[in-house]
Amino acid sequence: MTTPPVLGSDRLELGEGIRWTDGRTVLTDILTGRLLALPDGPDEPLEQITQLPCPLGAVAPVEGRPGHWIAAAGTGICHIDPAGGRVDWIGRPEDDSRVPMRMNDGVADPHGRFWAGSMAYEATENAGSLYRLDRDGHVTRVLQDITIPNGPAFNADGTVMYLADSARGVIRRYPVDPVTSDPGAPEPFVALTSGSPDGMTTDIEGCLWTAVWGAGQVHRYRPDGSLDRVVELPAGQPAGLCLGGPDGRTLLVTSARIGLPDPGPLDGAVLAVRVDVPGTPAAPYRPANSSASAPPDRADTL
Rank of each mutant, 00 (worst) to 15 (best):
R135K: 12
L130G: 02
T21F: 14
T140I: 01
Y121A: 09
V62Q: 02
V87T: 13
N155W: 07
C78F: 09
A127L: 02
D145P: 01
Y131S: 05
R132D: 08
A153S: 09
W69L: 10
T32D: 10
F114D: 02
P39W: 02
A127Y: 01
A153T: 06
V107N: 07
P55K: 05
I30Y: 08
L27R: 04
C78V: 14
L46G: 10
W20M: 15
G74D: 13
I80G: 03
G84E: 08
Q48G: 07
V139M: 14
H68E: 03
Q51S: 11
G76R: 00
Y131P: 01
I146H: 01
S129F: 00
H79D: 06
A71N: 02
W89P: 01
G137V: 04
R19H: 15
N150P: 00
Q51P: 10
R102W: 09
R135S: 15
R102L: 14
R98K: 15
P82Y: 15
R113M: 08
T50A: 13
D40T: 12
R65L: 10
G91I: 00
D136P: 06
R34S: 14
A108D: 03
Y121F: 15
A58N: 06
Y131I: 06
L36D: 05
V87P: 03
P100Y: 03
T140M: 04
M119I: 01
A60R: 06
C54S: 08
V26L: 15
D136K: 11
C54V: 13
G117W: 01
D40H: 12
A83L: 10
P110A: 14
T147A: 06
I49G: 10
W89S: 07
W20A: 11
A123Y: 04
T75F: 04
A153H: 05
T124P: 00
A120Y: 05
I80N: 03
E63F: 02
A108G: 01
N150Y: 01
E122I: 04
I90F: 09
G84Q: 08
P110G: 13
S97E: 13
G76P: 00
W69M: 08
I77C: 05
G137S: 08
P55G: 11
H68Y: 00
D95E: 14
L35K: 04
P55N: 11
L27V: 06
T21N: 11
G151L: 04
G64Q: 12
P42K: 10
D157V: 13
P93K: 09
I90R: 07
P42V: 07
P152M: 11
A71E: 02
R65T: 09
I148P: 01
W89G: 09
G91W: 01
